[in-house]
């Protein structure tokens, strides 16, 4: 178990190094930092001097290692626009984004398992047909369109739901700001969460359904029937566990991906998270902020994947963690 853990952590570090390298390469090719720092009215000699001082004329490898050293100390550069450390800017926006992802994840897990199982067990039911048709609709409408349609109907036409911002948020644990402490906060997070889940939820329903149908055909299910086991136990003990095992791995990747999907949702709902911030940073060519965003999102992605892999190893008896580490 410990060996497996160490192995997974090393893999995660390797991936993070690759991400940092890419992010750094982007930084070098995106705009001229000098222009941001001193403007255009400075003579070429002064520029060269500044370049030397800033280390911009050093070999790529030296610059990268310096960047990496700073990054390890939590220094991802200073945002041109906010004039603040880029990491601080992002960390301030992080709770909003993570709560949004959390809301969407709860919706996805809470609905995809019962609906996936239902549609697999009763493939010919009318309800199954309705669910599957809706899931196609959900899959084929882009997130921003879903978001705009929801705003149009529920905010503009019906006036039931707030259409932008986080609403009333409450500070908890000193740093974190949460939507889940007030009614207004809840009202604000519901539509963005639904919009964010609108692609993944249908995908997961279909994934779980397909996997469950597959599992239900297997020999051990027939054997359980031959032993006289009750149907509910066959579905929820024998089949569901085997169904969810492969889904866990896909699910982990998708939740990581969702952090990136927030860019669209946050922009449409003016959600003050790091996704909307990223889009603004791109517009302003705020290179340090862009790079910092990439690294933080990459880190979240790697972290969720590693955790999911560990969970998978723990719940799947056919994986012997002790042996895999060797």
């Amino acid at each position: 178990m410990f060996a497996y853990l160490v192995k997974r952590v090393f893999q995660a570090i390797a991936v993070m190094l690759a991400i940092s390298l890419i992010a750094f390469a982007i930084q070098g090719n995106l705009g001229d930092p000098l222009r941001e720092l001193v403007g255009q009215s400075v003579s070429e000699e002064v520029r060269q001097k500044l370049r030397d001082d800033l280390g911009l004329n050093d070999p790529f490898a030296v610059q990268y290692l310096r960047f990496l050293g700073n990054a390890l100390q939590g220094d991802l550069g200073t945002s041109y626009f906010f004039k603040e450390p880029a990491l601080d800017v992002i960390l301030k926006k992080l709770p909003a984004t993570l709560e949004l992802v959390f809301g969407a994840t709860v919706i996805i897990i809470g609905l995809s398992i019962p609906l996936g199982v239902f549609t697999a067990i009763w493939p010919n039911s009318i309800l199954t047909r309705i669910i599957l048709s809706l899931s196609i609709v959900g899959l084929s409408i882009p997130v921003f369109l879903t978001a705009i349609l929801m705003i149009f109907f529920f905010s503009v036409e019906l006036g039931w739901m707030p259409s932008f911002g986080r609403g009333e948020i409450v500070h908890v644990f000193g740093y974190w700001e949460t939507n889940f402490a007030t009614k207004d906060g809840w009202a604000h997070i519901i539509m963005p969460s639904i919009a964010l889940s609108s692609i993944m939820l249908p995908m997961f329903i279909r994934l779980i359904r397909a996997e469950m149908i597959d599992v239900l055909q297997s020999e051990y299910i027939r054997y359980a029937q031959a032993k006289g086991i009750a149907p509910w136990r066959i579905y929820f003990v024998h089949a569901l566990k085997n169904t969810l095992l492969p889904v866990i791995t896909v699910g982990g990747v998708q939740i990581g991906t969702m952090v990136a999907y927030t860019i669209l949702t946050e922009t449409v709902f003016s959600w003050p998270g790091m996704g909307a911030m990223f889009l603004e940073a791109v517009n302003r060519v705020d290179t340090p902020l862009i790079v910092a965003y990439l690294i933080v999102v990459g880190f979240i992605f790697v972290l969720t994947n590693t955790i999911v892999d560990l969970i998978y190893g723990l719940v799947n008896p056919t994986i012997n963690l002790a042996r895999m580490g060797a």
Partner: peptide, 30 residues
């Protein structure tokens, strides 16, 4: 009746037992 008065033994023991349940769980549930 199944598993109680009339029992069945399948062909391939590698795929007959549920991979995620222990032998004990599968016997006890029966």
């Amino acid at each position: 009746m199944r598993g109680n008065r009339m029992a069945m033994i399948f062909q391939d023991p590698m795929v007959t037992l549920n991979p995620v349940l222990t032998i004990g769980q599968q016997m006890v549930e029966t």
